[in-house]
Design a binder for these strands. Structure first.
Lengths: 210, 210, 210, 210
DNA sequence: TCTTAACCGAGACGGTACGTCAAGTCTTCCT
DNA sequence: AGGAAGACTTGACGTACCGTCTCGGTTAAGA
């Protein structure tokens, strides 16, 4: 539970032993997150109010505020549940295959599912909510980067790319280009776009900078 | 005026000749934009209300709504005035020099001035305001891309990179990586970051010697 | 208007000339007071919420808060409108006749109309709202006392009672006994009660024949 | 204890003999009443919440609700404990002496101690809580009246006043006038006020209504 | 000694209403 | 007709208490 709903006060302090008082309702947790997810998909984070979430979940507003300190952190929890396993760690044998597969999965998620609007809504909200910004980094961004860094490490082990590669910069280029198109929508994220992004990055780090 | 404040209804119908009635106050325009700029710098787009802008500008709310249909478009106008000339088109003789110079200018603007919060605030707002999203593309993004595409065209003419390079993808990688760090703040935009971004892209698109 | 709705900010300062801005809606005033009166009669002051008044009046909550700073002052205005002329100044020629007539009118008002619950509700509310307490004194109690003091003054002029009578104490006994029964309800306010109250007071202050 | 805290469910079923189960904590009773008394004195009945009483008494809310069905009844119990013996039955030998002494005691209690705010708060609360209204009559008003009726009976026995005197009306005038000033605060309860109230009533019932 | 019933503190539960803020619109007088 | 002022309706905010409920854990009497 703690792992899935870290946005709130997380109930009893770990190690403090007895949790005292009526325990938080697991049903309420579920109802709130379900309602949030539905509303997020229906009208986006900005147009969703805590009041509406409470009404749809059949829950008092305080029950939500007791668990989450802001709309953003609630939305983050709802998002994370759906997003986590949609981003698998591919292992195709070559870096090109891995990168293509990973970017395809990301693009598919943000264009074919409700993840797209959720993601943009959360990034938007994070711009004026420092706590959400931090939580987003800790619970979405860093896990994703850590996972994808593995692909680069394997490529280094295989000798495909030099060990001197700045993996952080590579990840920023990799996700940055796609995120840029997602946020501004100036150009579509086609298969060709994906291929070329991977091509440029791959060529850029494969070639020796002698 | 029309060219600088296209966010609003543009006042008198174009071509109708005589504007009839009292003309719009130029002082009001200036006062509103100045107040907006101040508030944007002080507390960001999200925490700025039309009501406050009106109060500080010494102007009725109606006077603002008559010119701009949304807070975002007003902020965009205030932003554009300040942002435009901060992004010069460098011409250093080599693509590497041009790219480094351009990215340095961008990073400096968003980290050393109030442009950073304004930019992130506007991108955030654009996520739930389609009109602003369009205006942002037309009035900020495309001009910037057009300007930077020239650098790539010159490099092609010089034979530094092949004509087959997908310039849009290059621009997405170029701006995407930096914007990514700006929005999420997971890593700083140091000089080294700038250099490596340029290096990877450059290596990725430079003509093969084979 | 000022005379009838002194609970609010009373709009423009008198003498300041032009009232600037959109004037307060007279319809809203009326709708609010009507709704308040209905709800007060239906369920009493305590069980009436500002929210419900707003809803029934078809008015925003702020429109009420702009005019009245508390529920009590709003209720007071609604009450005063109804109560004012229900308490006529009788002139029967004798003090006994005047007092009987006045007390009858008061008892009739609080037992036969909705004035009773309103009055008790307002006195109750005034116990924890000093502003209402003051307003009640100024706008209900003192006018009523001033009016009834006239009856005593006429009796003094006629020589029925000595000029040395403490008229304030007489009024306190007169209203106090009835109010006491109204608030605690331990005994009914019958015609006999009225007669005996008047008898005792009258006997107590009538000039000694000695 | 039962005699002093009759507001609650009175614990064990009458006649059932053995109460079964854990007996109610006497400490909790005391703590709750003490906390109530403190808060009543500090901020009045209206501004005191059950939640705060529970917190200060170091007691669960349930423990309070198990004993008292409403805030008013709890406050009544706290009040009665303090108020009871403050109102002695004077026996000075003359009705004037008795009345003066009794009214002095009452005025002193409500003006010099925290009894005043408690009393007004309870009367206020009783206006929208019929149960409290009944309890107030049974446990405060009637005992007080019964006690003071004795003074009138003694005066009748002594021949000071005729037996035909309506003692209820006299008591209403006696307490009504003072309560009136207490609730509305339009005039102070001075020694002169007390004397004149007694004078008028005494003169009113002494004199024969031939 | 072991149930068993009612208590205890703590604190979460679904609600209601609070008083405030800002949104975008409307209405007045004035320029 | 534009402009400043300030009203208007709407809707959401986050908070405080309400009276109820559920925990784990006493505390006694009865079996």
């Amino acid at each position: 539970m703690n792992a899935e709903i870290p946005g709130g006060a997380a109930g009893a302090g770990s190690g403090t032993g007895a949790p005292r008082g009526r325990p938080r309702s697991v049903e309420a947790d579920r109802a709130i997150l379900t309602a949030t997810l539905e509303l997020l998909a229906e009208r986006g984070l900005d147009a969703t109010s805590i009041e509406e979430v409470a009404a749809r979940a059949g829950v008092g507003k305080t029950t939500i505020y007791r668990r989450w300190t802001s709309k953003g952190l609630l939305a983050l929890d709802a998002f994370v549940i759906s997003f986590r396993e949609e981003q698998p760690l591919p292992d195709t044998g070559t870096l090109r295959g891995d990168l293509l597969s990973a970017l395809h999965a990301w693009v598919r998620a943000v264009t074919q599912t409700a993840m797209g609007p959720m993601l943009t809504g959360l990034i938007a909200e994070a711009q004026h909510d420092p706590e959400l910004r931090g939580a987003w980094r800790d619970r979405v961004l860093e896990p994703l980067r850590t996972q994808h860094r593995v692909m680069l490490d394997r490529a280094i082990a295989r000798g495909e790319i030099p060990a001197s590669v700045d993996r952080d910069v590579v990840l920023d280029l990799f996700f940055g280009a796609a995120e840029h198109r997602l946020l501004l929508g100036h150009l579509p994220m086609t298969g060709e776009f994906i291929a070329r992004v991977v091509d440029v990055i791959l060529a850029g780090i494969t070639r020796t900078q002698t």
